[in-house]
Design a binder for these strands. Structure first.
Lengths: 226, 226
DNA sequence: TTTGCTTCTACTTTATACCAAATAAAAGAA
DNA sequence: TTCTTTTATTTGGTATAAAGTAGAAGCAAA
């Protein structure tokens, strides 16, 4: 068993720890990451740390300059704009492909997840909102059948998660729930245009909200972000 | 000067060498890559080799299983289908964005490049065809303004190059030139729909041709590819 | 004899420790 | 202060030990 190839090597463990720390915002944008420091924290030598850093660079979480070390990727307005453009495009495409493959059961499951989001919202359970929100989007994407596309979007989703947490923002949850309802309705109706439109709108609203947030932060104090 | 951060470290050099070897087909799909072998060939220790291997894994050229080593990524029919779907989508999107940003001079340059392709074709200069063909596509993509998107497509283009070379295939050059003419015409006319359609068609035809090729190869002998 | 399982050996990757080179920081001179 | 020189810190690279995997050899059962 255990065909999963993950989590066995130190490199993987360290990469996972660091990725989570970056996504959670414990490691701030532009913060310097030193090999020795990480190695000492996890009681290892520097080699697996270095490999983990390179991996995170490839995933877009770190920037490494030769002989000058790594910093956590900054979050600029341009990043967010570019990011949402790509994500909206890929996700609406995935949704369109998923429409002909998705089962009624999966659509029903999405409906339940959207209900769960509402529930978490009423309990002010931010973690729950984020987790369920992500699962909602994953269901559609996974139904598209294109594995390469699924992996691409998965990475983008992780980075997206980081944007939201670091800028401590979940774009108006009630609006989001309504947008999800529209996505479900379009899937049920098998209306391709309507679906693409709904996914795009959802993405664009998310983008707009984050942009406003980052402008507010940069307006206040030009530190740490950007 | 030299803000370019490339080519200074051994890791970068080795990664570049290996990437080229894979793209050129000197390293065949599924071929095993051993650290020590590469290290000896380039007269280095194994550490920079390993970092290069991890980088190429992230770029999609290698597959690495923990404690079992690396192999050159196989090329399956599914890979090609999935690949073209994504590339067609991203490139048509980039083209659409580029339309409002591209200058008349750049369009004229594209026209010249297309002429060059024709010229290389008449000389049976395959290298020249591929190089100029890539440059043609790069001009559009670079005009789109979304750097993240440009990088994404750049990586896909390199993998695409590999598919074509390894399957020793340049999809009917004369057709391709006509399709390029249509792209140029759509850009001149500032006709968004026509442009997207043209880029998609170009991509789809390329895909169809490669699929036929890989089926022919797999039909003959089930070795080496897949 | 063949097949299937276990044990053992050899090889390859993973991790450690150490050295070299380059950059950043600090100290000294103009 | 500003520029140069020196020192210190950190990354990049080498050499080597440890751990895990694959394959060979040996044995038991069919």
């Amino acid at each position: 068993m255990q065909e999963l190839n993950t989590q066995n090597t130190l490199r993987e463990k360290i990469a996972t720890f660091l990725r989570e720390a970056i996504v959670k915002g414990e490691l701030r944008p532009c913060q310097r990451i030193q090999e020795i420091e990480i190695a000492e924290r996890y009681q290892t030598s520097r080699t697996p740390v270095r490999e983990a850093l390179r991996q995170l660079e490839a995933e877009g979480f770190l920037m490494i300059r030769a002989r000058r070390g790594a910093i956590v990727s900054p979050i600029t307005e341009k990043d967010i704009t570019e990011f949402y453009e790509i994500r909206g495009l890929l996700e609406s495409f995935a949704a369109e492909k998923a429409m002909s493959l998705i089962t009624p059961e999966e659509i029903e499951y999405m409906r339940q997840l959207n209900g769960k989001i509402k529930e978490s919202f009423s309990k002010a359970d931010v973690q729950g909102i984020l987790r369920t929100h992500n699962e909602f989007h994953e269901v559609i994407v996974h139904a598209c059948g294109n594995e390469r596309l699924i992996n691409l979007i998965k990475n983008l989703a992780t980075q997206h998660q980081r944007f939201r947490i670091v800028l401590s923002h979940t774009h108006s949850v009630l609006d989001s729930i309504k947008e999800h309802d529209e996505i479900i309705a379009a899937l049920r109706a098998k209306d391709s245009r309507r679906l693409i439109e709904a996914v795009r709108t959802n993405s664009e609203n998310g983008c707009r909200a984050l942009i406003e947030k980052i402008r507010a932060i940069n307006g206040q104090k030009a530190i740490s972000i950007n």
